[in-house]
Amino acid sequence: MSPAAAPPVPSRSAPVEGYRPLAQATLVLAGAAGLVALGALLPRLARRARPAPAPAARLRRGAAVLSASVLADSATEHYRGSYHHRAMFAAPAMAGATLASLGPGTGGPGVRRATQRSAIATGLAGNLFHLRNAMRRPGAPSWETLFYAAPLGAPGALAMAGIGGLVASGLEQAPPGGETARRLGRRLALGTSAGLAATSAEAALLHFRGAFHAPAMWLPVTLPPVAALALAGAAWRPGERGIGRARGLLRATAAMGLLGMAFHARGVARNMGGWRNWSQNLQVAPPMPAPPAFAGVALGGLAALDLMEAP
């Protein structure tokens, strides 16, 4: 017989986290959906409080959806980056503030304007921060940097939300009419069209990273650019048919943005461990809060069309 007795079994410490996968997953899903719904509803509540003309409300709602998307997306992505730089808190914080500034009765008009201007500044500064981060990586510049360093264009979405909010406020303060409205509408249409193209470019990069493994991944790189072209075309040579076509495409883009969230939720489920492995997969699977950004920008485009149709 061996002189050694059976080795002692080390005591097992308690699990690090209380682990209820279904509950957690449901919570996260509900949270994400709630954020977007909040973004869409806040302006509606605002309108109830203080009736505003349709284009302004639409624009406000678009800006709110966009800032909600930035809030959830940057919070997740910067968590993935361990918030290793304090400035990384700025993105979700500013997106949250912007979202609030688009809601009913939060602060005076001065505070709202200041918040939305800060969002623009934060977004543009974010672009520079991300560029610096990317260029510091070995191999930069390269495709791999574009794939895995901080995304260069993403912070621009926050700036777009800020601009949308400012313009919406302006519209509400002094609703323009006639030619002024139509001119503003055309300018807004061109800006939104550029924003749509940029958002689509980011989706293209990330879907290229995912090797377009699912056919649906082609949708956000084809539909929004077509919508953007139609929108720009309508702004360039306004006409009933052009505006109608652009409106249809923008509505489709908005719907696609919401559908995209469902596709990305399926992406989470398809990764190893699925929703049970949410603590990894919500960080690495397709980002659920990202696609609704298309809806936000598309709403801005629809508002521009509304303005262009001003009597």
Binding site: P10, R12, S13, A14, P15, V16, E17, Y19, P21, G273, R276, N277, S279, Q280
Partner: peptide
Amino acid sequence: VLAKRDTP
């Protein structure tokens, strides 16, 4: 590491 036994 055993603290992770009951996690994913």
